[in-house]
Amino acid sequence: MLQYLVRRMLWGLLTLLLITFVIYGLIRFMPGDPALLKLYQESSDKKITAEQIEQQRKMYGLDQPFYIAYVKWLGDVLTGNLQTSFAYKAPVSSVIGERIGRTLMLTINSLILEYLLAIPLGLYFTARSSRLDERSGSMLLFMLYSLPSFCGALFLQLWFAVYLEWLPLHGMQSDNYEQLSTLGKTWDLFKHALLPVAAFTYGGLAYYSRFLKATMNETVRQDYIRTARAKGIGPLKVLCWHAFRNSLIPLVTQIGLTLPALLSGAIILERIFSWPGIGTLFFQSILERDYPIIMGLVLMFSILTLLGQLLADVLYAFVDPRVSYK
């Protein structure tokens, strides 16, 4: 197992090098010059000399070909320095670090909710298979699954924030946030997070409960389920122990794959809810051609993707005794 892990890690590192190199190249060839952009923002009279541009480009390291700049970036990364953001004029790690918690607050909560609700729902629908409540419930889940999250988010905003006025429309804090007590602050945050979390959750909830039901439908037809029933085990235990334990195998593989989505899936929804997290930062940094930030986030997403796959494989061996890595 250890040997397998080490081998996988080494392959992962190689993949990481490739991903970052290709993306570094791609963003450098993207139209738009961060140096020019910066100067336009800063100069009042819109008169910029070639000298100024040259100087700014040199400061950003844009005067060198992208592969040399990449090697320099890589060298910095290896010493733990993610370089300095063009736009924020602060170290990339601190810019990301400041926002990562806000995004995780949405995504981790919604992931927990998804599983917490999807598993009992999937089991219930398996037990009630082809009855009226299961048919209508599955129909509803299918509709939710088909509804893109940005659409769902707009409906949620329209209904709960605009029409009912129960919850804030967007943002993370109210204007008077600083004046609130600790309890008040928590409550304020909770109210702001409710709609984004709901928008994050419903799609995954629909997906996982449908996925679990489909897997369970397959599992309950297996011969060993008949064996379990022939032993005299009750239907609930057959379903929740003998069948579910087997359906857990494909489900667990999915968990690993959701790891990168914890951060990357936030881009659109954070924009809609004006949530100052990683997604908004990523979007902004692309608009502003803030190369160090883009690279920092790409590096983080890539590591999470690779780790997620590794986690899926390790969990797989953990839940399925037939799988072992040698």
């Binding site: 297996q222 060993y224 005794p321």
Partner: peptide, 9 residues
């Protein structure tokens, strides 16, 4: 079917 009649996990 002895191959599939026992629960694999």
């Amino acid at each position: 079917e002895p191959m599939t009649s026992l629960n694999p996990v």
